[in-house]
Amino acid sequence: MGEPLKVGVVGTGTISRTYFEHLAKLPGTEVVAAADLDISRAKAAGEKYGVRAMTPDELYADEEVEAILNLTIPAAHASVTLAALGAGKHVYGEKPLAVTRQEARPLLDAAAQAGLRIGCAPDTVLGTGTQTARALLDRGEIGQPIAATAFFVSPGPEPWHPDPEFYYKPGGGPLLDMGPYYLSALINLLGPIARVTGRVGRARQERTVGSGPKEGTTFTVEVDTHVTGVLEHESGVLTSIVTSFDVWGAKLPRIEVYGSEGSLSVPDPNTFAGDVEVFKPGSHEWSVAQVAGGYADSGRGYGLADMARAIRDGGRHRASGELAYHVLDVMESLLESGTRGGAPVEVESTVERPAAVPEGATPDVA
């Protein structure tokens, strides 16, 4: 198998814990260093996980580190990735790839010019939930896919989040926050998206913090909090999508796909596993399908391990920067359509549908 890919983590906040824990168990990767603008946090992570602690600039210059795991806040994703690429490092990051297409495109160009890899979350789509659904679709379990639905609805994060204001500033909102999970799953299942039509709205101009030291304080909503529309896949499938921070309760599926010979219910794309259910003509109830694909018992970091395998073998990695860029392009196009009264918008980018993850696969084997 060869030597594992030596990884340095930039950003040691809450999300880093699950990456440290999963990557320690995965073949093909070895976390060797941690960095943060707050060096005390980097040192705490270093002590807890047995890695060297340093500043981000020191990490970029470190000769042992081959790849950077970018776990900074979204506003810093582009600058950190560009710095890492400039230092000759591969990069895997949390979603989104960048806040805008204008920030994201130069990252892909820089990586291509340097012969480096970019990967990006979510890698939830590599688990048994989405991948089992994909295997069923690919073998024709529900015939020819015709349409799909995708729903993420909630009242917003402020009832539980102690500092939720950033969710309601530019770069936030339900689509940009949760859309990457749903769109990454839909593209894995049904292929890239060619055209979108959207409408947008917001229920309230102010929100109130519901917990923590800021409880009871209000703040201004600067983005649309209900986004709905139609996604036209290159395959001809039409997906109806709703993402909302304006819904207190609903009985809705996460993702369903409707075919000429049945229907398929896909589990929450923000999780790695879950039951896939099938409804066929002549049946009066949904049945749970057997696992038919995906990395078993997976978690955050599997996308990076998959990229490490691709770097070693020269193949393609599944949670790619190109996929993340297409997802970002689709989201921005949907918002543009909404602000233009629902006028259709052509999605400029496309992407090759990622390779399926076979049942029983491990990230060190394609």
Rank of each mutant, 00 (worst) to 15 (best):
T362P: 06
G129Q: 05
G46P: 04
E232W: 14
I146Y: 13
Y258D: 11
D62R: 00
A148V: 05
G314S: 00
V257F: 11
P155K: 04
A83W: 10
D163V: 12
L175R: 03
G262Y: 09
L264P: 06
L323F: 05
E261K: 12
A121G: 15
A67D: 12
A35P: 02
G50L: 03
I193K: 00
H22E: 08
A361I: 01
T243C: 15
T12Y: 06
P192K: 05
W160M: 14
L23R: 03
G50V: 03
A148N: 10
V230K: 13
S244W: 09
I241H: 12
A147I: 07
H77V: 09
Q113W: 07
A147E: 15
T271H: 10
S283N: 08
A296K: 01
E256H: 11
K43N: 10
V7T: 05
R195D: 14
V237N: 10
L23S: 04
G294S: 02
G212K: 11
I68K: 00
D163G: 09
D246R: 04
G50I: 03
P180Q: 09
R204Q: 14
G140M: 06
Y60K: 01
S40G: 12
F272K: 00
T350V: 03
E21W: 01
V32T: 08
V291A: 09
D275Q: 06
R52G: 07
W286G: 01
V276S: 00
E103G: 13
G119V: 04
I311W: 04
I118L: 12
L71K: 05
V10S: 03
V266C: 06
P56W: 06
K280G: 06
E348C: 02
E21P: 00
Y302M: 02
D268R: 00
R318E: 05
V242T: 15
T350A: 05
L175K: 01
T218R: 15
E232G: 08
Y92Q: 09
S333Y: 01
A308P: 00
P155A: 13
Y182M: 04
K25I: 07
K214E: 15
Y49D: 04
E66H: 04
K43L: 12
E64F: 08
F151Q: 11
P170V: 07
D329L: 00
G172W: 11
A84R: 06
S154N: 07
D62Y: 04
I39A: 10
S40E: 14
R117E: 13
